[in-house]
Computed example of a mutant assay.
Amino acid sequence: MILTERETPKGLLVSVCDRDVLGETFENGEVSITVSEEFYGGEEAETAEVATTLARASVANLVGERAVSLAIEEGHVEEANVLEIDGTPHAQFLRM
């Protein structure tokens, strides 16, 4: 997975995507997501590192089977709240 961390005044913003979706655009009717290098591009990370970072995140954006599945397994995202955009899972969470 590709992991990016950004410190913001509101806390840690994390973006995670599967390598195979980086640079792709997915559309489903009026809903569209572009997995841009600018936002999602970062370092390759192992599952354990991504899990640790998600646990510290204030906000997270996730795209791809592996990234979203890990967030579900770790209890950060409920499966019922995952969007499927052109067959690709996308989820976000905000910790307040």
Rank of each mutant, 00 (worst) to 15 (best):
E65P: 08
A80M: 14
A71Q: 05
T8S: 09
V82S: 03
G87N: 02
G41L: 00
T25W: 11
T52Q: 13
E79D: 15
V59T: 14
T53Y: 09
A71Y: 09
A45C: 08
S15M: 08
S36V: 08
S58W: 13
G23I: 14
Q92K: 13
I2A: 01
M96D: 11
T34G: 01
S36F: 02
V68L: 02
R66I: 00
N28Q: 15
E43C: 11
H76I: 13
L22R: 00
E65L: 12
R6E: 14
Q92D: 02
Q92G: 01
N81P: 11
V77H: 06
T53W: 11
L94Q: 07
P9L: 12
G11K: 09
E44N: 07
T88V: 15
L12I: 09
R6M: 09
V31H: 05
I72D: 07
S32H: 12
T8D: 04
I2Q: 08
L83V: 05
F39D: 02
L70C: 05
E5V: 02
H76T: 09
S32A: 14
L94W: 12
N81Y: 15
A80I: 15
L12M: 03
S15C: 03
I85T: 08
V14E: 05
L54Y: 06
N61Q: 13
E24F: 01
E37N: 12
K10S: 14
V50Q: 01
D20K: 01
A80G: 14
D86E: 14
S36W: 04
E38F: 10
A55S: 14
E73M: 06
V63R: 02
E78G: 06
A48N: 08
L13S: 12
G29Q: 13
V50A: 00
L94S: 07
F93W: 11
T4H: 00
A71D: 11
I85H: 05
I33D: 01
E37D: 13
T88C: 15
E84G: 10
T47W: 03
V68W: 00
R19T: 04
E78M: 11
V59M: 15
V68Q: 04
I2R: 04
A57W: 07
A51I: 12
N28E: 15
G41S: 10
V63L: 03
T52D: 11
Y40M: 10
H76W: 15
E46S: 01
T8H: 05
N61K: 10
E44T: 06
N81I: 10
E73D: 12
E65Q: 09
I33C: 03
V77S: 10
G42Q: 10
N61D: 04
M96S: 14
S15W: 00
E5M: 03
L13E: 13
T34D: 04
Y40V: 12
L70W: 09
C17S: 05
E44A: 08
E27I: 14
H90D: 05
A55R: 15
L94P: 03
E79I: 13
T34I: 01
L3I: 00
E49M: 03
V82L: 04
V21I: 03
V50E: 00
A60G: 06
E46N: 08
E30C: 06
V21P: 05
G29R: 11
V59S: 10
L83Q: 11
E7T: 13
E74R: 15
P9H: 05
A80W: 12
R66F: 02
E5H: 00
F26V: 01
T52W: 04
L22S: 02
P89A: 07
